[in-house]
Amino acid sequence: MRISFSKREHDLLERIRSGDEKAMERIYNEYRNEFIGWGVENHSISEQDALDHYQDTITIFFEKVMNGTLQEIESSVKTYLFGIGKNRILQQFQKENTRLRHEEGVHEHYRFLAEKELNDIYTSAIEKTAGMFSLLGEKCKEILKLFYFDKKSMTEIASVMNFKSEGVARTSKKRCLEKIREEMTKERNGG
C-alpha cells in the first residue's frame, strides 16, 4: 500500500521548499533526539557521531526537498530520514568527501567530461563558483540558484524575478556567468 505524507507533513515540506527556516528548524528538532538515541543504541556509535550523522542526513533531506528531487515518497518523513541515516552510518559516508561524491555523480551523467581539457575547465569552474558564490551579489545568487539548483526554466525565472521576458532572464544569467569566467581568467593569468 502506498503511504504518502500526512497533510501536516505535506504542509511542512511545502514550507521547506519555499525556504521557511522555522519549518526547517521544527523538523530538525522533531527527530533529533530520537535519531541520536537510535544511532547510539542500534549502531553502537557515539552520541557526537550520531549527531554528526543526523546533521548530514537532515541537510541532504532539505536539499532534496528544496531542489525538487523529493516530491513524494512512499513513507513518512521519519521513515525517510532514518532510511538515509542508516545508509550513512553503514557506509561510513561521513568520512568521504562531499565534493568528490558530487563530482563522481556528475561524471557518470555527463560522460564527455572525461576528456582532460574539458574536465579541467569543469573542475576550475566548480572551485571558482563555490568560492565566490556568497560574494556574487544577491541578484546573481538568486538567478544561479533558481536555474542550477531549483532547475527552473527561464520563463519561470523571469516570473519569479519580475523580469520583462525570459530573454532578459537569460541575459542576466549570462552576465553572472561572465563574472565567474572573468575571475577564472584572472586566476589563470596569475592576477
Binding site: M66, A125, K145
Partner: peptide
Amino acid sequence: AFELGVKSGVELAVKAELKSK
C-alpha cells in the same frame, strides 16, 4: 564544461549554506 562546473559549484555552495543553517 564551464556551465556544468558552475552548476556543481552552485549546488555545493547552496548545500554548504544549508549545512551551516
